[in-house]
Design a protein around this nucleic acid. Sequence first.
DNA 1: GCCGTTTTCGGCCCGACTGTTTTCAGTCG
Length: 559
Amino acid sequence: MTNRDVARIFDRIADLLQIKDENPFKIRAYRKAADSIYHLDEDLTYIQKSGRLGDIPAVGKAVQSKIEEMLEKGSCEYYERLTHEVPEGLLDMLALPGIGHKTAKLIYDELGIDNLPDLLKAAREKRIRTLPGMGAKTEYNIKKGMEMLKEASAKSTLGLALPLAEELRDYLLNSRVVEEAAITGSVRRGKPLVSDVDILVSSCSFEAVHHAVSSYRRLEEIESLGTDHIKGRLGYNLNFEIIIVPPADFLSQLFWSTGSKEHIKEIRELGGEEQGGAFFSEEAFYASMDMQYISPELRENRGEIEAAGKGEIPQLIELSDIKGDLHTHSRWSDGAHEIEEMVQAAKDSGYSYLAITEHSRSLPISRGLNEERLKAQGKVIEALNVNLDEFRVLKGSEVDILKDGSLDFDDDVLEDLDIVIGSVHSNFKLERDKQTERIIRAIKNEKVDIIGHLSGRLLNRRPGYEIDRDRILEAAARNQKIMEINAHPDRLDIDEETAKIAKDMGIKVAINSDAHSKQDLKLMKYGVINARRGWLEPADVVNSWELVDLLDYIQKKQS
DNA sequence: GCCGTTTTCGGCCCGACTGTTTTCAGTCG
């Protein structure tokens, strides 16, 4: 079992206990343990072997013995016993917005419903409204939530798909049944949501590939099989296709399988012919059509073919261009690690600066900082900087944009900070005009440098709030505000389309991890992929600049 | 169930919104 698998079981135990209405602190203890395990650097198996399970934060005797049981037997008796008391299908219901543990339990107790299809049926038959506290709106929300879940199950985030694709590719390479293997299709193009994972392999033996795939640890099901492909489903409900080609065709098929369909269609219409052979390379192929090389992220038929013909393909930003991260959290608010640990991780990433930007006081769930704690943190950061060579920790805040567009801190408090991100975390359902005015008011505040996760969307979970994007971008351009690309693969906000429009309007972008742990700093790569899909170059991305230039741009003198 | 530089027992994030009510429980961030 992986750390992730173990963490998931503890989370489910917490859910089951919550449905059973057990001691809330016990439930929280399991959640904290799950979170702590999820964010571990090392493999649990290794930690167990060296006898350090008890050193994991939030892991005490009870949780430790369950971890040992899971690592040894692959199962957990306590968890299985709970699932006998509470049907597991109730956990699926919790994914519906508005349905929590109490409601799920009520629906089960009163109507005997323990799965999503029956719940939908009951909502359609207006049986939910017979329960106390439930009405027509609840039924409507259930039906709407089910539609959302259906859409979500059709696609996976890149944050889920890419690591699994890399793992499958490496597994095939290491099993030595293939000569070459590469991720292709929409994952190679870096789409934020993908319907499947495509792996192109070259092999002379279909049987050997089939045999290897059959014993892959994450395989759930093989659905379709032919000498040129294997299609099926992996764990986490992720569809996959392995495309098998002869070694001589590998590079050309990598091009044709990458897509997108629209890009390929356009290439064919311009006379691009399928060609194989060992001399094929994508660079040479585009060159043969008098075009510059087009990176996979750009192959969406959104003007890249014309640009490549004119020599106007941008020099896309790369992960190695990134010099710092401007949006991170530490244990001072809801992060998992100390500032010092975050700094070390940033140095390990090759960065030369890192901004600590905790939540502000209006977000108590995230232990948002009040003015006193913010000032105290500033002192800690100043002291830290004294002993840092060639690295700078920036004092920052992810300050809440309140309902009326004012900020959670007064100007004189923000004055002392190096970097200020304004973000919306509440009142998501304001009507469009009010939401737009709210954000524009924050943009006009001269203390604000960056607008964080503009749309508030959570991929597969929540659409963004209603805003007039064009008006907001105009205001950002006028006030020289930086728009964030939040790199978390569940957000990727602003999206690629907005990023391209912003670039064309001369608005600068910051690609920020929004890290809540040192491992999260690595999520930067998803933001860079998203920026590339938005045609961004280093000149467009402020945290690919030297710090002095960044501070100069936001008109703050380096102290 | 975890934790401890006041504690090995008694604490452990909380305010706002929603949908249902007509004063609030449940959900969410």
